[in-house]
């Protein structure tokens, strides 16, 4: 049985919000019996975007993660729903807009905080993968169709094929520790949950300061080299994928003609060391 999955590439998401707006466009003012009642125009972000800003000075990034109901295979909401929440054969989870009326308790059941409480209708609601459209032959949900960079991709494949894809493309899910087996996968999720260490390498060029291009930069942890890179023409380098608050690191920089430098620093979150001056 082929089932639906969503693959979201954090590196391709530009925070344009076409996905959140397309979802609202679909559900604001429209009810689809058996699938979902109307979404309130404001406040209920069935599809939501989280921002993570990393860095300081001139080495700063903003990364965005689209989140929504994960259509988990081992979903606490289905278990707690007493038949009001169903898992379809194609993997999609639907909170029945009639049967689930009054079930505010379900909101807290979802560890991913993906259930929204519709106060007016007294209804727990989620992003339904636009199952009502897929059932009519649409090839993808609205959020994927409207996405300009195709950062969101919906695929209907066998679970075994999906596992292979996860392996091959290094996909991750949100909070695997909850054990709910999400069907929404992420590429480049490290942009959201790791930190970087960057810097700028300079040297004294007969009295003026200049950037050093092509300096070799080594990152050491506990005396062991864990990564190497080179500076660009602005003298900048960056080591990504470090854990927050991961203690002391040493950076060693060397250039064949312009000298070397070493810095040791405690690392809590993303940093940009602006002024690493080489000494000959």
């Amino acid at each position: 049985m082929k089932k639906w999955n969503l693959i979201i590439d954090v590196a391709k998401c530009e925070n344009c919000h076409n996905c959140t707006l397309a979802t609202k466009d679909e559900h604001d003012g429209n009810s689809f019996p058996g699938y979902a009642a109307e979404q309130p125009r404001h406040g209920a972000d069935w599809v939501k975007i989280e921002r993570k800003v990393r860095g300081e000075g001139t080495m700063v990034e903003a990364n965005y993660q689209v989140t929504m109901c994960n259509h988990c295979d081992d979903a606490p909401c289905v278990k707690a729903g007493d038949g009001s929440v169903k898992k379809r054969d194609d993997g999609i989870v639907i909170i029945d807009p009639d049967k689930a009326r009054g079930r505010k308790d379900l909101v807290d059941v979802c560890p991913h905080k993906a259930i929204w409480w519709n106060e007016e209708l007294q209804l727990p609601q989620i992003w339904i993968f636009d199952a009502h459209l897929l059932d009519q032959g649409w090839k993808q949900p609205r959020c994927a169709q409207s996405c300009p960079t195709k950062a969101i991709e919906a695929v209907k494949i066998l679970d075994s094929e999906m596992s292979a894809l996860v392996e091959k493309e290094n996909l991750r899910v949100q909070n695997p520790e909850f054990g709910t087996k999400p069907r929404v996968y992420y590429k480049n999720l490290h942009l959201m949950d790791t930190e970087f260490l960057g810097g700028c390498v300079l040297y004294d060029n007969n009295g003026t300061t200049d950037c050093v291009e092509d300096a070799k930069v080594t990152l050491l942890k506990d005396g062991n080299s864990i990564a190497t890179t080179a500076t660009d023409f602005f003298g900048d380098f960056k080591f990504d994928g470090l854990a927050a608050d991961s203690g002391e690191y040493t950076i060693e920089v060397s250039h064949p003609t312009q000298g070397q430098a070493a810095i040791t620093a405690t690392f809590s979150q993303s940093r940009y060391i602006n002024d690493i001056l080489l000494q000959v």
Binding site: L21, D28, S146
Partner: peptide, 19 residues
């Protein structure tokens, strides 16, 4: 290029400005 007319968010939100 992608075989789609790629739109802006301000277009995607227009229905809500009608109603």
């Amino acid at each position: 290029p992608l075989r789609q007319g790629v739109i802006n968010p301000h277009a995607q939100g227009l229905k809500s400005t009608v109603y």
